[in-house]
Every structure is written in structure tokens, then in C-alpha cells.
Design a protein around this nucleic acid. Structure first.
Lengths: 214, 214
DNA sequence: GTTCAAAACGAACGTTCGTTTATTATGGAC
DNA sequence: GTCCATAATAAACGAACGTTCGTTTTGAAC
């Protein structure tokens, strides 16, 4: 089933761990299943990653590190050159496109990554939460600042709440892409990334632009 | 720490289990910790609930059952009498208010329920997912129908996606109420339920009313 | 006072968990 | 060929896991 024996052992462990964590969560995943899938001895995990939590950290670093970079890079390019009217849409696209595109293909790899992202957001393990926050905070702050420039009239707490809603919806969709497909019996296709992205951008841009309550 | 010895054992087990599942997820929670907190023998869990999964099922039944009923009841009352212009807002309130109010108080009980809801949404355990879906589907369909009546011009897939975003954001906020508070150093207070609810309703109503993409 | 089913228990089942230790291969430097 | 750090392994550790078994307590019925 799994013969990536040409890859080095660290990578094979990371791949298998990502898969297991995405499917079972931190507590539910077992190192023995991971090393079996990776074709590696159990102790190798400890040689390279020191512990199960160290392994999770490495998995998150590899995947969320590049994700974060891509989000921030996109945000930078869209900051100045976009026309004022579509600025919010561009910012949202910078948020949404990287994780959604990462999952564009109908490959097992993509499915795995999507699940991992969604799963991690509600991961009970405190160390995992702390790791995620370290990755996410930088991104969150950047996007708050960007949207704030576009919508200066919006009070800060309102803006913070609204962006939180965006992150939540994004994570939810990533985590359970099958939910909607099954529930609607094919009316909505989570695999059509461009369509989903367009849906989200329209929806969230409208929400962000709504006048503040009160 | 825990002296609800006057309650019957089933209830004590359910309370302790709810707490453990909310904090650690299904795999992360241990029956031994649960029975210790409940002041009950380990085998009692099996006597009443047949298995760990049976226990989880009972926990979900107790909590989501009443939640679902309240959501549907609220939806019914708001269906006809509300003025046309504010119909969407009333529907959103029927969705959001029950789970959010359940968590209104700053009690440990409320915190526990919030966590449970958020946690369950991304729970890896297949049986738990199936249980959740059974509870959630009825509610989802009802709300889809209700919003559809309000916004007949909106294509069905667009509406389905948008309601999915609402559920996602709601679950996210419920699961990690501390996230925003910590990240913003007190600018946003997740405990102020009425304010949060108002925020969500404005945001989502605006998103739902946005013209369809295309 | 006996009977009997429901309720609750103590103790152990076998398994799996994350982790550690001690040992063996590997491969370039001298 | 020797040396030595790196890489990888086999085997086992103690602890915790979900689950089951056989027994005891309880409380109402007769």
C-alpha cells in the first residue's frame, strides 16, 4: 500500500504522522501505526523528534509554515495595487486561497491536509494548541491590520469578531469537506475549489462590510 | 472538589463524561478519570451505557437533544410573525441563541457545554460523527428551508454553502471562546453573549443577503 | 425471612500506549 | 584498519487503556 521507501525516513515519518493526526487527532493517533505505515522502527521517531508532541510539532511546522508564508505573501502583493473597491475581496482571497488550493486535487494527500487543518483547530491537546497559536497569531494580526485599513470606520472589536467568524467557517469547511456533499446529495461539490472560494469571498466580504451593530 | 453525591449515578457519570469529552475529545478522555470524578465504580459505566461509545452517545443525546428542540421551537415561532425585513435575522437568532445562551453564565458548566459542542464538530471518531450528524441533519434541513423562503432568489447550492459557513463559525466560536479574548487582550469578551450574538447576526445576515456570485 | 432482579462493586483481563535502553549497522576521516 | 558520530534497530519498560467477570449489596415483593 505504501512504498515511498525512496524518501528518507524523516519524511516518511512526517507523512505517516500527518495522515494519522489528520484522521484520528493527537490522542487518537498511535505511534505504532505511524511507524508501521512509514516502514520505520518505533524508536526512530524518538531519535528524530524526541516525543509524540515533538512529532506533532514537526508536522505542523512543515505544513503550516509554508501555508503561513503563502498567506502573508499574497496579502503583501494585494495590499497596494488592488482597486479600493475590491480590496476586501483580495484580502479574503489571500486568506482563503492557500489552504483551499492546497486541497484542490482529489488526491489522498490533499484530503489529508484539509483534515489536518480542520482537526488541529479544535485539538484538545494543550501543547498542540499552543503550537497552532504560535503559527496562527502572526497571520491573524496581519489580516486584522489589512482589513482595518480597508474599513477604518469599523470598531476594532467588531472587526476582530468578524474575522474570527471567517477563520471558523474556513476551518469548518476544510475539516469536513464531505459533510456538505453528503448532506446535499451532490448539490454542492467541495472539490470545485474556485467555486467554493468565490462563495466564501462574496459571503464574507458582505459580512465584513456590514455596518457595525448598535 | 466534586460532591454531587445526591444525584443518581447515571447523571453523575454523564456530567463527568461530558466534562472529560469536552476537554480531551473522545480518544483523549479516559473512563477511569470519568468514574473517579463521578465517584463511581468503573464497571458502572458498562452497566448503564454498554461501552465508551455508548456513553458518548448518551452525553450527546442529553445535550444536543434539548438543544435541537430549542432551535426548532424558536424557528417555528419566528417563521410567520416576524416582519419580512427582519426574517433572516430572526432565523439566525433561532440558530445561534440556544447554543450561545447555554453558555451564557461564567460557570464551569457553561464552559463545558461550549467546549463539547465545538469539539464534537471535528471529532475524529466515526461513531461520534455519525451520532452528531443524526442530531444535526434535522436542524440543518429545517434552517435551510426557512432561509430559502426568505431568499427565494438565491440558488440552492449557494444557500447551502452559506449556511455551512454559519455553522462553522458558530462551532468555532463555541469551541475556543478563549482564543479571541487572549489574542486581543481583552478587547473582545466572549462572555457577553448578547453582544456576540448581535455581532454574528449582523455579519451572517449581511452575508446571506449578498447577491449570488456569477 | 426468603427470593430475586437491579444496582454497584473489586479485581483482574489482555492489549496498547508512549517511552527508554542497550546494541548494532553505516560511512566518511584519519 | 581504526575511530567515531550518526543512524537505525530489537526488545522491553511501566503505566494506562477499555472491557469483562464473578460477587456483593440493595430494596421491594411475597
Amino acid at each position: 500500500m505504501d512504498r515511498p521507501a525512496d524518501l528518507d525516513r524523516q519524511t516518511r515519518i512526517l507523512d505517516a504522522a500527518e495522515s494519522a493526526f489528520a484522521e484520528c487527532g493527537f490522542a487518537g493517533a498511535s505511534l505504532r501505526r505511524i511507524v508501521a505505515e512509514a516502514g520505520v522502527n518505533l524508536a526512530t521517531v524518538y531519535y528524530y523528534f524526541r516525543s509524540k508532541e515533538g512529532l506533532m510539532g514537526a508536522v505542523l511546522q512543515r505544513r503550516f509554515g509554508s501555508l503561513r508564508q503563502e498567506q502573508l505573501a499574497r496579502l503583501k502583493t494585494c495590499g497596494r495595487r488592488a482597486p479600493r473597491r475590491a480590496r476586501v475581496e483580495r484580502i479574503l482571497e489571500a486568506m482563503i486561497a492557500p489552504p483551499l488550493r492546497l486541497a484542490a486535487a482529489r488526491s489522498a494527500d490533499a484530503e489529508r491536509i484539509r483534515r489536518l487543518i480542520g482537526r488541529i483547530v479544535t485539538e484538545p491537546n494543550p501543547q498542540t494548541q499552543a503550537l497552532l497559536r504560535r503559527h496562527h497569531d502572526e497571520v491573524r494580526v496581519a489580516f486584522v491590520e489589512a482589513v482595518r485599513e480597508c474599513l477604518p470606520a469599523l470598531p476594532l472589536p467588531v472587526l476582530l469578531w468578524r474575522l474570527e467568524f471567517v477563520w471558523g467557517a474556513l476551518a469548518f469547511v476544510l475539516c469536513n469537506p464531505r459533510n456538505l456533499e453528503e448532506a446535499t446529495q451532490g448539490v454542492c461539490d467541495p472539490e470545485d475549489v474556485n467555486k467554493v472560494m468565490a462563495q466564501m469571498i462574496v459571503f464574507f466580504a458582505s459580512g465584513l462590510r456590514a455596518p457595525g451593530p448598535g
